[in-house]
Measured scan of single mutants.
Amino acid sequence: MAAAAAAGAGPEMVRGQVFDVGPRYTNLSYIGEGAYGMVCSAYDNVNKVRVAIKKISPFEHQTYCQRTLREIKILLRFRHENIIGINDIIRAPTIEQMKDVYIVQDLMETDLYKLLKTQHLSNDHICYFLYQILRGLKYIHSANVLHRDLKPSNLLLNTTCDLKICDFGLARVADPDHDHTGFLTEYVATRWYRAPEIMLNSKGYTKSIDIWSVGCILAEMLSNRPIFPGKHYLDQLNHILGILGSPSQEDLNCIINLKARNYLLSLPHKNKVPWNRLFPNADSKALDLLDKMLTFNPHKRIEVEQALAHPYLEQYYDPSDEPIAEAPFKFDMELDDLPKEKLKELIFEETARFQPGYRS
């Protein structure tokens, strides 16, 4: 834990890192770190609560700039109880001085990944967590956004079992017609939660990839272990087919990539493993919904509104309290091709509203 900075004593240090967030945020305490930044909790002297502050230093890398800009653009436009918001952003007053960006968010005690390492969940908890994931996802999908990296560590939890989806750095506007060349190379989302079509096709992607990830998360809540822990690309596919069985001819016809289709045709026939054999203690309604989410063919996979209306979630289902976005989200430009200098300018502009004396 960093010592509390005395008023006016300059930035606090946390594990050798400068955290320049005073005077409003003090009493910093280390939480963890990701690929390009550290997260601390801090005391907000204005709202009198502890908050989470993520320090991001992305400006050396085009990919990190892209992810940072995506996350900020999306989260500043989203407003939903099951999606983490941005409360404040701290950065230098000029673009030349801006080396880091500090993002202030609600402090959540833990995440689903940490929880599943230590606790076996009751059916009631599984049901409530799944409902909140789908409630947040309904809003995301209504904005025409794909999260693309749903996994237990991106689901934040607090002691009252509130759940918030975080990390929109890989999110995209849904565009089933656009052929994202190089899709697989830039697709760094965790393999275990990846839909089979991501490994088999490169053309376009749809909201059904997020539903697949939610199915993987439900299976993990039922058993405290990942359902498809593939060691590499082909191993991942083999794990999936080992449980779902061989795809039907109709399902194979959806695979545009001939090499991928021929690979699947070359494999020995596998039978589907019954879900109640894998999860003998699970609620039968939970397994019915799991089956509809972990469907090989993305066109037959359940959609988020149908999933919310499934009998497993009937005690929570309330369409009048499951809000959607006001308007579909649009990125003005494809960020993939922009140089990091341009992305830095866009991050600077996007964060201006939090600067003292800002006038829109």
Rank of each mutant, 00 (worst) to 15 (best):
A9G: 09
P11I: 06
R15V: 05
R15P: 07
D20K: 03
V21Q: 03
G22L: 04
P23E: 00
T26Y: 08
L28C: 04
S29G: 00
I31T: 00
G32D: 02
A35C: 07
Y36E: 14
S41G: 11
S41A: 12
N45Q: 15
V46P: 11
N47M: 09
N47E: 10
K48D: 15
V49Q: 09
R50L: 09
A52V: 12
A52L: 02
A52Q: 05
I53P: 02
I53Q: 14
Q66H: 15
R70K: 05
L75K: 07
F78S: 10
H80Y: 11
N82D: 01
I86S: 13
I86E: 01
I89M: 11
I89G: 01
P93A: 07
I95W: 11
E96F: 01
M98C: 07
M98S: 05
V101R: 04
I103F: 14
Q105I: 15
Q105S: 10
Q105M: 05
Q105P: 04
L107S: 03
Y113A: 13
L115V: 12
K117L: 10
K117R: 01
T118A: 00
H120D: 06
L121C: 06
L121Q: 14
D124K: 04
Q132N: 06
I133K: 07
R135N: 01
R135V: 01
G136E: 10
L137H: 09
K138L: 08
H141Q: 11
H141V: 11
S142C: 08
A143T: 11
A143Q: 12
A143G: 09
N144F: 10
L155S: 04
L155T: 03
L157V: 09
D162A: 11
I165W: 06
C166L: 09
D167P: 06
F168L: 13
L170R: 07
V173E: 15
A174Q: 12
P176R: 09
D177K: 05
D177Y: 13
F183C: 12
T185N: 13
Y187S: 13
A189K: 08
T190L: 09
R194S: 15
S202M: 09
K203F: 07
S213Y: 05
V214C: 09
V214L: 12
G215R: 11
C216Y: 12
I217V: 00
L218V: 02
M221P: 08
L222Y: 10
L222C: 10
S223E: 10
S223G: 11
P226A: 09
P226R: 08
P226E: 05
I227M: 07
I227D: 07
I227W: 03
L234M: 15
D235C: 10
D235W: 01
Q236D: 07
Q236W: 03
Q236M: 06
Q236V: 08
L237T: 10
N238I: 15
H239Q: 15
H239C: 09
L244A: 01
G245H: 09
G245M: 06
P247E: 01
S248E: 07
D251Y: 14
D251R: 06
I256W: 09
K259C: 02
R261Q: 13
R261G: 11
Y263S: 04
L265A: 07
S266I: 13
S266K: 01
S266R: 15
K270L: 09
N271F: 07
V273M: 12
P274M: 04
P274R: 09
N276I: 14
L278T: 10
P280N: 07
P280C: 07
N281A: 01
N281P: 00
A282L: 05
D283F: 07
S284G: 11
K285V: 12
L287T: 04
D288C: 06
L289V: 01
D291Y: 14
D291P: 06
K292Y: 09
M293R: 10
M293H: 02
M293T: 01
T295M: 02
F296G: 07
F296K: 00
P298W: 06
L308I: 02
A309E: 06
H310E: 04
E314S: 08
Y316G: 02
D318M: 07
D318T: 01
I324Y: 10
I324A: 03
K330Y: 06
F331D: 06
D332Y: 15
D332R: 01
E334H: 07
D336E: 13
D337Y: 14
L338Q: 15
L338M: 14
K340Y: 09
K340I: 07
E341G: 07
L343M: 12
L343D: 06
K344L: 07
I347V: 01
I347C: 10
F354M: 12
Q355P: 09
G357K: 07
Y358L: 10
Y358N: 11
S360E: 14
